[in-house]
Simulated scan of single mutants.
Amino acid sequence: MGNQIAFVSTDKEQLTYLSQQSYFEMMAHDKLFDLSKILEVPTEQNEVMFVRNQSVAKAFVGEKQRRLKRAKKRAEARGEVYNPEYKFEAKDIGYFHSIPVSSKANGQSFLLHIQKLKISML
């Protein structure tokens, strides 16, 4: 995961034209990245999509504690008594991957939760 980017198009000529742009050729020549062959997507395969699912984090105890602590701080700032009403709701999350990343803006590390979804053809 990561360190890759894919360009997809129904027009192979557009992809060929894109891959021959001077920027891409220069970067490939300087070995800053590689350009792969242009491949056709098999038509007999089911389509899938990878999405970021931020709600996955809510299932972990540490995230729940962080959210409760934040809610308490906000309630106290409003002058209210903090009295959380927590109701457990079972939720099927499914399989996911967690990728450790760090923010370039503030340097904080966090997990990026990615799930693969099957796309039903209409």
Rank of each mutant, 00 (worst) to 15 (best):
V81H: 06
F50I: 12
N83T: 09
S103W: 06
K31L: 07
Q115F: 02
V8P: 00
L18Y: 13
L111E: 11
G79Q: 12
E25G: 12
A59T: 14
K87S: 05
H29P: 00
L111N: 14
A59H: 03
T16K: 05
Q45A: 08
Q14L: 12
K64H: 06
Q108G: 03
M27A: 12
A6W: 06
K72I: 04
G107Y: 00
E13G: 03
V61W: 01
V56R: 04
Q21L: 15
R74A: 15
E85N: 13
Q115N: 07
L68M: 09
Q54C: 03
N83K: 13
K72R: 13
K91P: 01
S109H: 02
E85P: 00
E44Q: 15
N53S: 14
H29S: 12
K12A: 07
E13R: 08
Y86P: 00
E89G: 02
S103A: 13
D30M: 10
M26C: 05
F96P: 01
I5A: 09
R66H: 06
D34N: 05
G79I: 10
K64I: 15
S98M: 00
Q65Y: 02
Q20D: 15
Y23V: 15
F60K: 05
V8S: 11
N106D: 15
Q115V: 09
E13H: 03
V8Y: 13
K31V: 04
Y82P: 06
R52M: 06
Q115I: 12
D34E: 05
F7L: 14
K31M: 06
K87I: 12
Y17W: 09
S103D: 07
S55K: 11
E13N: 12
A6F: 06
E25I: 06
E47C: 11
V48H: 15
S9G: 05
M49D: 02
V101T: 15
L68W: 05
T43W: 01
L15H: 01
K58C: 06
